[in-house]
Design a protein around this nucleic acid. Structure first.
Lengths: 328, 328
DNA sequence: ATGAAAGCGCTAACAC
DNA sequence: GTGTTAGCGCTTTCAT
């Protein structure tokens, strides 16, 4: 690989001049031309590692998410990527697999590679951001909030829970269960709280506990919880799914039991990825995944550019698409 | 951030010794202890950028895929990631969006960042690997083959096409259409060829052209092609979908027209991601996405370790799951 | 506007 | 086994 020294020699200038040409500072027209020419001839690509070492920062941001196979997060990733690459940054996708240890490893890498910032959907409430923050790098939390005083982009989780539940009530359902992600993740807890509050006021005095299930944010979680609910002496006549994958699992189980929605009512918090269901059968509370990614990326870039205002918290709205609505 | 010099000073040794401790070469027990101690105290993390610059290679591999939102590719990514991280490598996921230009940008970054290798599902037959290959970095092609003489992992695409089509014939369908990805992508062409050959021998003399559709490997591609097919004066009674997303799109349209499978027969090449359909309604030819990623990663690591044998071509088998089979 | 030179943090000869 | 030292390729003062 050619270096700036090779280019400098061929162009008859100093390495510093070559560097300047590639960084857009004051160089005379002729020299610029000479350098570009030489660079072309040698197929020169500036070595980013060297630049990063020298500059102590690289145009790379880390996006740490708990499940790369969940379309919700890949959609978010697209949002991040679009904004970032527009600004000349690359995005490194890191899959923490919802494990704090893996997450920690990736954060360490982000530091060690001099990345300029991190956008993270934390694995857990035990996620440790001390290390990154100590280096002064900006960190933006997405999807889930943290106990740190940092920028965060979340959405109206509680209201997502209430909207989903209400649409089921409006459709005439009475015994409405909730299946959500791990109770210790704030999004899951908030959505459950929304469900609970609606039911509490609709049917005061009814016991809700046996209708509430906390599981993983994955298809198998939705499946097993739905099986449990169906095995109840008095099964629910509707269910709120706490995220897209839980929704898929729940619907799978219902279908297998011959209870295809809307026979049993289903409201999903999150878009049904690649659904093949009739769009009228299920209520969907669409989450602003992409928008979230876009917003987080913008905030992070601001910080990278030196913005020092107090930590901002952005809460995005959701969009309910009741079971009766027409497609798109 | 602390450097090896800081650690060296605190531990009372030379920087070289610190480096040795972190790279597992011969150092006396006491010094190892002293260094680890000092490192701990200073919260020292080796700076990878510097190491990379010095070593001229980094423990990062690039995985370039055309659609990060397609579960097929994320599943593959998981396979790559698992093998890579086991071996101490990180994986950078790059989304080419099926555009040769974006792909080229990422390949340039891979070079400029001294990454040690690339696994790529090319965007196109015009994909240009000259640059990376010229640097001597190993490149492994996955999913799609290339015109370069490099390791590649693909699967039995033609036979996937024939299996899918046969299962439809076995189920009693006669007028079987095919919707596939862009004709210039080899996987799409091969799968179509499989379909064509089965029909040609089953119904010799029948015209196939009007039943064959090439579109994008995305949901909207499947949707529009299915709409076209249904608009035919003599619509098909079954369809082979060339990939998972096309399958989703086709099934969506069929459902919207009240033709829920198996009313119209559907065979999908690729797993239906997060399907909520009854598993008995649709034939699925499962593709070894994860296995493909695993294999490619192993091959790449071999090459990184200096393996110089001639380029290998691995073709993986698929697994047919006919419409009547039970789940999982 | 341009060049000389120092140095980012690490590793790998090379000496001892 | 351990220290000394010379770079890896780039950017950035500081002179000129």
């Amino acid at each position: 690989m050619a270096t700036i020294y090779d280019v400098a020699e061929l162009a008859g200038v100093s390495p510093a001049t070559v560097s300047r040409v590639f960084n857009g500072t004051n160089v005379s027209e002729e020299k610029v031309a000479a350098v570009r020419n030489a660079a072309e001839k040698l197929k020169f690509t500036p070595n980013r590692t060297a630049r990063t070492l020298r500059r102590q920062s690289s145009e790379v941001i880390a996006l740490v998410i708990p499940d790369i196979e969940n379309p919700y997060f890949t959609e978010m990733a697209r949002g991040v990527e679009d904004v970032a690459s527009e600004a000349g940054y690359s995005v490194v996708l890191c899959n923490s697999d919802a494990q704090v240890e893996k997450e920690a490893t990736y954060l360490r890498i982000a530091i060690a590679e001099n990345m300029s910032g991190v956008i993270i959907a934390t694995a857990d409430e035990r996620s440790d951001l001390d290390g990154v923050l100590a280096t002064g790098r900006p960190v933006v939390a997405v999807d889930r909030s943290t106990s740190y005083d940092i920028d965060s982009v979340t959405m109206a989780n509680r209201s997502a829970g209430t909207s989903a539940t209400r649409s089921l009530i409006d459709a005439g359902h009475r015994r409405i269960a909730y299946i959500g992600g791990p109770a210790h993740i704030d999004t899951a807890a908030e959505r459950a709280a929304g469900w609970r509050s609606v039911l509490a006021s609709a049917h005061p005095g009814h016991a809700l506990d046996e209708l509430e299930r906390f599981t993983t944010f994955r298809v198998d979680g939705g499946r097993s919880a739905m099986e449990e609910l169906l095995a109840l002496r008095e099964p629910p006549d509707a269910v709120v799914a706490g995220n897209n994958l839980i929704g898929v699992g729940a619907i799978q189980v219902l279908t297998e039991h011959g209870l295809t929605p809307p026979e049993v009512g289903v409201a999903v918090i999150g878009s049904l990825p690649f659904t093949t269901l009739s769009p009228t059968a299920v209520t969907v509370v669409r989450l602003p995944a992409r928008h979230m990614g876009v917003t987080a990326a913008r905030m992070l870039l601001d910080r990278i550019d030196g913005d020092t205002q107090p930590a901002r918290t952005v809460v995005l709205r959701n969009e309910v698409q009741p079971a009766s609505a027409t497609r798109r």
